[in-house]
Write a protein that binds this DNA or RNA. Structure first.
Lengths: 342, 342
DNA sequence: GTGATTTGTCAAAGCGCTTTGGAATTCGTT
DNA sequence: AACGAATTCCAAAGCGCTTTGACAAATCAC
């Protein structure tokens, strides 16, 4: 069943049927209803390839999926993708994904762009001075980055959360509670969010004339095991930190295991604030000691990005080019006054 | 730059240029070379949408990606995807992925199929009596499943590994080493591979007149933490098992943590065989006690599946409809004779 | 040198949709 | 009743490619 057949069936021209379907105003409401009815009965679905050829729009957004697992945790990626997907499906868009080695992100991105299969690109896992930006800007294809690239001029469309502010606020809270010895469980050092969170912490400390040494900052993959190892290391230090900032609840999972095994009490001996991406299976309030967190939903970010990209492709009212989401600092039981040093 | 312009540039017809490009025999080699040269110079790329409209082939394979993280481990999924991707990129194919809640797999699959964006479907995470099979067979679209569906007639194209054989062999080895008390760390109980691995173990035991009780079999997500918890439980049993079969090296990671923390020696007090999907970041030989494993590369399976699906879409020489890969049993240091029971 | 093949090329007809530029009809105004 | 404006619809021209059927030109057999 194609447009031609459908229009013959209805005794209308293809033009009218097409317009009725695509919501153009120059068609009588009664006619439109008749068309819609026929579509329901016949199960007609417009041919995507033809639509695409005629409009020049593929109805899809492309993304490169890093496949090496040491790059960020897959859990986070999956969650983000869900958000993208929820929104995309609503607009009858789809994704084209190109799995790629993290070392060939630029190449993979270019291949995806010139493949002609996508209308727009989505970029994640931003690094400091990210080489993909220059390439993207030379391409004449809309794109949107999740995050930013520290050190590059922020003249590209992005959606990011205020990582620096989040960890600044978190550190501030811990400082107010009297903590002075900090440690940071961070993601991979080259990633933008890690850089900014670190800076947020450093700035908050600097305001009090405090510093943090390199060995009190760990940069690892965002899974629980590295979190545990790093925390074990912190706990063995002669002047062990009492305030921990943690880039993910997944990392916190491991860290807390280490705290427990050391026989220490979270919220008393050790205060910890983790960034919460709102992963459905890892709610901070369900930890044995509920976690104080900086919160921002990864899934919501995905949905928003899809929304903006799709609007761009459809040339609808433009959204703001750049968005910076504030995080919420939610105090639960994993933070408490600094223990007395005797 | 399109075909028309290119052909005018060359003083040839569109037909000839098209044929030269697509490797048809009825074009002079000299002419073909001239065309190829022009393509290189102009950077001409055929318009995908037009190609698709003309041929009816989209050049893409679709898959549903479960987004709830409790379903199998993302690590495994990513690895598999890499294999698919490597092969797909070689044939200028791409994926369309539809993220979906595991509870709506059937719906997501149907939406993907009727979207008209894909030529073929790939299905994973097979369950026993999987409801998707009936739907797929009613769809007139090629598909290939990774795994099988226990309890359904195997009359669909699949690629699977011999899960039952793998765990049968593994159990056999441990039996020969004198073990009699077994435990199983398995994936989610409803998944096909878990069912078959369990059966493999049960069959091997039955041949010796042995049985395994329900509480010695754990079914969890394929990540390290559940592995650790389950193992801790096993180790606290009055007659604790000495032989452990484990559905993934990731589960083994947690299990071994539990073994170590209990002060037991792997390969002496406890023998363990894990299934190894050949995850690049988790090599069994790099464990502190190198792991005895049943091995089958997930990435290779992905590549093979892509190869078969693409060939099907291109209507090339058909591959065997059904493939069952044997696994290799590789003995390392995590298995040893059963400890003397005093 | 004639007729039968093979080889290399082309014009034109789709593929199924959107969209432009009218044309026909209806409506509101004078 | 007449006229311009709005409304509703249509024919036809693409979009850029593949593929069919036909036709010259070159090759072969005799």
């Amino acid at each position: 069943m194609n447009l031609k057949q459908l229009s013959e069936l209805l005794g209308l021209s293809q033009t009218t049927v097409s317009r009725a379907l695509n919501g153009y105003p120059e068609v009588n409401e009664a006619t439109r209803e008749r068309v819609l009815q026929a579509v329901r009965e016949t199960g007609y679905r417009p041919n995507k390839a033809a639509q695409r050829l005629a409009t020049g729009k593929a109805g899809s957004i492309g993304l490169v999926m890093p496949t090496a697992p040491d790059h960020y945790s897959d859990v986070h990626f999956g969650e983000f993708l869900t958000g993208l997907g929820e929104e995309a499906v609503r607009h009858d868009f789809h994704f084209v994904i190109m799995p790629a080695d993290p070392n060939d992100e630029v190449g993979a991105l270019r291949r995806l762009a010139i493949s002609g299969n996508v209308d727009a690109l989505f970029i994640a896992y931003m690094r400091g001075h990210d080489p993909r930006l220059a390439m993207l800007q030379s391409l004449s294809m809309p794109f949107l980055v999740h995050g930013r690239s520290f050190g590059s001029e922020p003249d590209y469309p992005y959606l990011d959360i205020d990582n620096e502010g989040a960890f600044y606020d978190a550190a501030k809270l811990l400082l107010q509670l009297g903590h002075t010895r900090f440690a940071l469980l961070n993601g991979p050092a080259h990633l933008d969010f890690a850089i900014r969170r670190k800076n947020g912490l450093i700035n908050a400390l600097a305001e009090r004339g405090l510093q943090i040494s390199e060995e009190c900052m760990s940069h690892t993959a965002m899974t629980d095991e590295p979190g545990q190892f790093a925390m074990e290391r912190f706990l063995q230090m002669p002047e062990r930190p009492t305030a921990i900032l943690c880039s993910s609840t997944v990392l916190a999972l491991g860290a807390i295991r280490a705290v427990n095994q050391a026989g220490l009490k979270l919220g008393e001996d050790i205060s910890l604030i983790a960034h919460d991406d709102v992963l459905p299976h890892l709610k901070p309030e369900n930890f044995s000691v509920p976690l104080t967190t900086t919160r921002s939903s990864l899934r919501a970010a995905g949905a928003r990005i899809a929304q903006r990209l799709i609007a761009t492709v459809k040339q609808e009212t433009p959204y703001p080019e750049q968005e910076l989401w504030k995080t919420e600092l939610i105090v639960r039981a994993s933070t408490g006054p600094a223990p007395r040093t005797d």
